[in-house]
Design a protein around this nucleic acid. Structure first.
Lengths: 130, 130
DNA sequence: TTGACACATTCCCATATAGGAATGTATTGT
DNA sequence: ACAATACATTCCTATATGGGAATGTGTCAA
């Protein structure tokens, strides 16, 4: 199988940075496609395609105004993401206190060996990623 | 260009449902890979690959315990998602009040024409998808 | 050292992109 | 009817992906 479609849900849809920009831009008020093109500096067909994806997952609404199409972010559709991330809020609160503890212990040089967690990032894992 | 790599950031990494499940599962405490395999009912190589992605973007930490690898969610790395979605919180609050208004106006049959938004979803746009 | 256990990695492949270019479609003004 | 405007869609292609299967690697026990 391949990756899930960008239109499969809000999570996949907002994975694309450009689409997030568009959602930000359309949050305050509805805008015609042309303004999005100008403001974000993206090609018109590209914007239309992104809007199509956002529309399919319900992240934006449309309305026709003459020959223009007015798009607008449907914030409601972003709630599921917010709620999912929210379930982790209590955990990073805990981890923050732990970090604080460690920092305090560090300024207080005592026994501090132990393996500990390796929170390695990208470059630690793969040196050559073209 | 193709889609951005799943390892490019947390947004892309959590787009995959299985990876979200794994993060949920590893939020409370660290777990060896085998338990993830049993609990989620996913093949072991598949789990390892998902963990690799999560590790690359910093969404999990690892620690070795004998021949087992103990993984754990790094909630801190989910914060950026939370913060992004949070910027829309005030908007869906507004939209909710608007929905309420409309509902109240509906029970009070008066002038209620106007074009209005079309919030069409998937099936309205594309009847035949594969 | 050898076997077993716990994971990680590689190979293979069907699939869905995102962007660029070109073209299609709907609406307005004259 | 026709040109112009504003978008949408299609065609093309390089690319990354997730799953299955097979294999590689590291660690422990005897």
């Amino acid at each position: 199988m391949a990756r899930a479609a960008t239109t499969s849900d809000a999570f996949n849809a907002v994975a694309e940075p450009r689409r997030r920009e568009i959602l930000n831009y359309l949050a305050l008020q509805e805008r015609p496609v042309g303004e999005i093109v100008d403001s974000l500096g993206v090609a018109q067909p590209s914007v239309s395609k992104h809007l199509r994806v956002l529309l399919e997952v319900g992240l934006v609404n449309v309305r026709r105004d003459g020959r223009r199409m007015l798009y607008r972010t449907n914030a409601e559709a972003i709630r599921p993401l917010h709620q999912w991330t929210e379930t982790f809020e209590r955990y990073w609160r805990h981890q923050l206190s732990r970090v604080k503890e460690r920092a305090e212990r560090k300024s207080n040089p005592s026994n501090d060996a132990g393996p500990g967690f390796s929170s390695r990032r990208k470059n630690d894992l793969d040196g050559n990623k073209n």
